[in-house]
């Protein structure tokens, strides 16, 4: 363990921990924009700078390893001025159209502007004007809002191992783009959207729903594969507005294309909304009331049982439904009808 002092408070951290991690352990709030604890430190936004005794100039706490007896200061007039200037510089090259921005309310830049009480910027000047349009059903990109934090590039490379996007050009004209500015070729996991701190990356499926007000959040579990990722469903009225995942779960907030974007089926207009009965063999399925349908199912099952014995009846349970449903289903067959003819289709 390493002992150090941050803002006059002693703290102990594991060897290899960064100053930022040590500060967070003390619940000291250091602003960040390009940092994500799930990715390698980057040190690009310069907001997490701190002063360390013995070092000639401020250093980024996200990249600096904590060392024994280090003395760290996270708040000073000088640090505050540098952080404020950095945010102002970002705002000087940002549309600042929060009112109509899809990222509003979930935007770190907006929060930083609020924190430093910045309505505008002293540094008006040229702004980037990107006109790239991405043709794909999931990822919406508004590059003028990109703060070049590099999170999307890093998550794609470090976590997803895909490397679908990278940097191009230099200096003020730097931008993030697929290799050789070609069409985006990716797995559409949306990890980049999840880590984007501004409205630069968002989901195309989100459009048309409120951003914050009126959305309800429900924590649940994905219904696709056996990974069992935790999902947060953001619903609005009768629809799912978007799906996200919290960082502090076993899937660490990462999802795949199906989990993140494959939810439209829930509100498909092809959903079954009423029981259907085929009243005679060869006839067609016709709507029926629940009473009629349930009575029919129960009476026919009992009928077959009484004529041919319980083993003339079988049940196929779902590997897609809940434990409770599976349990009650097999119980119904075993205890209710008296057969062990119950299986599931997961072998396919």
């Amino acid at each position: 363990m390493i002992s150090l002092t941050i803002d006059n408070q002693p703290v102990e951290v594991e060897a290899g921990a960064t100053v930022l991690e040590a500060a967070r352990k003390l619940r000291i709030d250091i602003p960040t924009l390009c940092h994500d604890s799930r990715l390698k430190p980057h040190g690009a936004c310069r907001l997490c700078i701190v002063e360390i005794a013995g070092m000639p100039k401020p250093v980024t706490s996200c990249t600096t390893p904590a060392t024994e007896k280090m003395v760290v200061t996270t708040q000073s007039a000088h640090l505050n001025r540098l952080r404020k200037t950095t945010v102002e510089l970002l705002l000087s090259d940002h549309p600042n159209d929060c009112m109509i921005c899809i990222g509003s309310g979930d935007c770190k830049l907006q929060e930083l502007a609020y924190r430093f009480n910045l309505r505008g910027s002293r540094f008006r000047g040229k702004m980037r004007a990107h006109d790239r349009i991405d043709e794909n059903p999931f990822v919406q990109r508004d590059q003028n809002k990109c703060v070049l934090c590099g999170l999307c590039v890093r998550v794609c490379e470090e976590i997803q191992g895909v490397g679908a996007i990278g940097y191009a050009n230099r200096g003020f004209e730097s931008k993030i783009t697929p290799p050789f500015e070609k069409e985006l070729s990716c797995e559409f996991c949306g990890q980049c959207i999840a880590v984007c701190p501004t409205g630069a990356l968002s989901g195309k499926l989100w459009v048309g729903y409120p951003r914050q007000q009126g959305l309800e959040k429900t924590e649940t579990t994905c219904s696709y594969c056996g990974c069992g990722c935790n999902l947060t469903l953001h619903t609005y009225g009768k629809s799912i507005a978007k799906v996200t995942s919290r960082q502090d779960n076993h899937n660490r907030g990462w999802l795949c294309v199906k989990g993140r974007f494959g939810y439209e089926f829930v509100t498909s207009n092809e959903r079954l909304t009423t029981p259907l009965i085929r009243r005679q063999k060869g006839g067609s399925l016709e709507p029926a009331s629940w009473e009629e349908a349930l009575d029919l199912v129960a009476s026919r099952l009992l009928d077959i049982k009484s004529k041919h014995g319980p083993d003339a009846v079988g049940g196929l349970a779902s590997a897609r439904c809940t434990n409770e449903e599976g349990y009650l289903f097999q119980k119904m067959f075993r205890a209710g009808i008296g057969t062990n003819n119950v299986d599931h289709c997961a072998r396919y």
């Binding site: 540098l82 200037t85 950095t86 510089l89 000047g125 040229k126 070049l148 200096g171 003020f172 730097s174």
Partner: peptide, 21 residues
């Protein structure tokens, strides 16, 4: 220097541009 900035960090990427302006 503004043209040769790599574009990674904010003060250099935008700051040198604004200085030049």
């Amino acid at each position: 220097t503004q043209e040769e900035s790599c574009g990674k960090c904010v003060p250099c990427r935008i700051g040198t541009k604004r200085l030049l302006e």
